[in-house]
Structure formats: structure tokens, C-alpha cells
């Protein structure tokens, strides 16, 4: 386990990260914000003392593009999570889930040459939609999509070097569409030679889908992928909005509001009150006819709080 980086030392306390932080919005307590974590670290607080906010962070990445000091705040949280106590009550269940994903990955065959699509567990659980996405993209679907690695990144779990090497060796130099925003974020660092895109942006670029996005739609961008490639994607989605007239889940800073705010102990659990409140806030003052989500996981909170159709982006294309 590496020692935590010293990036937090550069935090000047401007609080800009608080404004976009769903964790802060939920708790209204500066301890529950990237700034709170960085400032506490500057005063010598350990990961154990910061357990509550480290568990509460959903790693949506909204804080990263707004930090004027350029601190990688998501990386700070991910690193500190590695130092949380292994005795936390849910740790064993997360380790077991990671091991299950790793076992499936070990059995995966090497993918054929060419562009690849890494769906992630949520989409893989819906074979019909998965097949539709694959057909629309025209990419092969990777049987090893790094689900165990994505989970480890999120939860502070360990990633064996050999496992990481095997995963990356199969992907390097390819065109990749990645369903998991957190994994995509990390692949940008690990695979500088790969042509990476989020699943949402890849699908929204396809004309059969793009031309069916309506001005009465509320289009929900997957926040992790968006914030990880903010400077490019803010322009991309600005064009999408200008072309289609749809409303986006962007705040006034053009930061994506996440529909889900999963805290560490309930990553694999059911919807929480916080998710429902977040979805309600996203829809406040809006009257869309339809909600279009990039991430399948974002469907549930909207289906809970409204009775208009909630579609995955791939479902927009006609059969």
C-alpha cells in the first residue's frame, strides 16, 4: 500500500468543491467535503479519523474540475480509502464481491483485435440491452471488463499487480468504450496510448441515437466519466444541448449532478433516501417528457420519483 500523496497540502480552502459536492449537499457540514478532508489532513488527521466522510463520498468527481489548485481530489479520497480499517463491517462483503468478479475475469479469453466495449456489471446484467449496445457501437464486448479492478478503485481494495498487468495488456493501443466512469478515469492514466471514450459519449455520438434526443428530454450524463475528461466533454455536451435542445443534468458551473450518491457501505445496496432526494432536486423546476440516462444504474432513482418514461440511451435507437 502506497503512502498517501501530499496533494492535500495545496488546498487553499476556497470551498469551490463544496458547491458541487453531493456529499456536502446531503450533510451541510464542511467535514463532508473534499475541502474538509484536505484541511483536516493539513492538520494531521488520519484516514481513521476521517472515516465518516471517506465512506460518504460517492466519487462522482465533481470536485476535480472546479479545484483552482488542480488537486486530484478524487484520487485523494481513493488513496485515503485504502488506509481505512480493514475491520470495517462491510469490508468482507466487498472483498468477496471483488473476488467473485476477479474469478470471472480469470476465466475470460483474450479479446479479438479491434475496438472493445467494457460494459461493467450493471449493463452485463441486462443481456438484451447489452446486445443492443454492442450492435449499435459495432465493438466487440470484452469478457474481462475489469469489474474487480473498478470495484477495488472505488472501495480502496487491493489490486494485484499481475492482475492489473494482464487486464491492461489486453487493452493497450485499442479504441475502448468504457461503461464504468471510475475505471475510465483510471484507464486514462494507465493507458495513455488507448483511444478512450465513455459509453455515454460513444452512444450519443451515433446518429440513430442523437437525432432521437428531443428538446423535451432530460438527459442525464454519467458524472464520473464526464468529470474525468471535463474540458473536452463540457464542449461536447454543450454542442449536444445546442443541437437537440434537451436539458442536461448540469449545474450553473456545468458540473454534472449525480443521480446516485452511493456511500461506501451501500455500494451494492438498494436505493437510499439520499438518492431519492438527489433525483428530486435534479428534477426540481423541470417538466421533461422523458428522462434519458447514460448509465443504467441512474434509472432507478428517477423511476422512484416520477412517472415519466426513463430510458437508457441505447433504447432511443429504433430496432
Amino acid at each position: 500500500m502506497a503512502a498517501p500523496s501530499l496533494d492535500h497540502a495545496r488546498c487553499s480552502g476556497c470551498s469551490l468543491c463544496r458547491l458541487v459536492c453531493p456529499m456536502w449537499r446531503q450533510h451541510r457540514d464542511p467535514r463532508f467535503s473534499p475541502e474538509g478532508l484536505a484541511k483536516a489532513r493539513q492538520c494531521g488527521a488520519t484516514a481513521a479519523e476521517l472515516t465518516a466522510p471517506l465512506e460518504a463520498c460517492s466519487l462522482c468527481g465533481a470536485c476535480d474540475p472546479v479545484c483552482p489548485e488542480g488537486i486530484d481530489l478524487s484520487a485523494m479520497v481513493m488513496e485515503l480509502r485504502q488506509h481505512l480499517s480493514p475491520a470495517l463491517p462491510y469490508r468482507q462483503a466487498l472483498d468477496a464481491l471483488q473476488a467473485k468478479f476477479a474469478l470471472a475475469a480469470a476465466a475470460a479469453e483474450a479479446p479479438a483485435a479491434g475496438a472493445l466495449f467494457l460494459p461493467g456489471p450493471a449493463l452485463r446484467a441486462h443481456p438484451v440491452l447489452l446486445a443492443r449496445v454492442r450492435a449499435l457501437l459495432g465493438y466487440a464486448c470484452a469478457t474481462d471488463d475489469g469489474a474487480d479492478i473498478a470495484l477495488a478503485l472505488e472501495t480502496g481494495g487491493e489490486i494485484a499487480p499481475a492482475r492489473r498487468r494482464r487486464f491492461l495488456d489486453r487493452l493497450d493501443g485499442r479504441t475502448l468504450a468504457v461503461g464504468d466512469g471510475l475505471l475510465l478515469r483510471q484507464l486514462r492514466h494507465w493507458l495513455p496510448g488507448a483511444r478512450l471514450q465513455s459509453l455515454g459519449a460513444a452512444l450519443a455520438s451515433l446518429m440513430p441515437i442523437r437525432r432521437r434526443i428531443a428538446s423535451t428530454d432530460f438527459y442525464v450524463i454519467e458524472p464520473r466519466a464526464y468529470h474525468a475528461d471535463y474540458e473536452r466533454l463540457v464542449a461536447y455536451y454543450d454542442r449536444l444541448q445546442a443541437e437537440t435542445g434537451c436539458a442536461l443534468n448540469l449545474d450553473l458551473q456545468r458540473i454534472a449532478l449525480p443521480a446516485l450518491t452511493p456511500a461506501l457501505p451501500r455500494i451494492t445496496g438498494p436505493l437510499a433516501d439520499a438518492d431519492v432526494a438527489q433525483a428530486r432536486w435534479m428534477l426540481q423546476g423541470r417538466t421533461p417528457h422523458r428522462i434519458v440516462v447514460e448509465s443504467l444504474a441512474d434509472r432507478a432513482p428517477f423511476e422512484r420519483v416520477c412517472d415519466i418514461p426513463v430510458l437508457h440511451l441505447a433504447e432511443l435507437a429504433q430496432d
Binding site: 480552502g13 474538509g36 483536516a40 489532513r41
Partner: peptide, 22 residues
């Protein structure tokens, strides 16, 4: 009331960054 460095650290200074206190 919260005490300790995790709670108080965020308030160590203001935007000016020249006055320090906890």
C-alpha cells in the same frame, strides 16, 4: 459540538491565509 483536528482543521485560516487560529 465537534472537537478535534478533523472537525477544526477546516477553519484554521480564512481566504486571506495570513491569520491562523483554531
Amino acid at each position: 459540538l465537534a472537537e478535534g483536528r478533523a472537525a477544526c482543521g477546516v477553519y484554521a485560516t480564512d481566504a486571506g491565509g495570513t491569520a491562523y487560529g483554531q
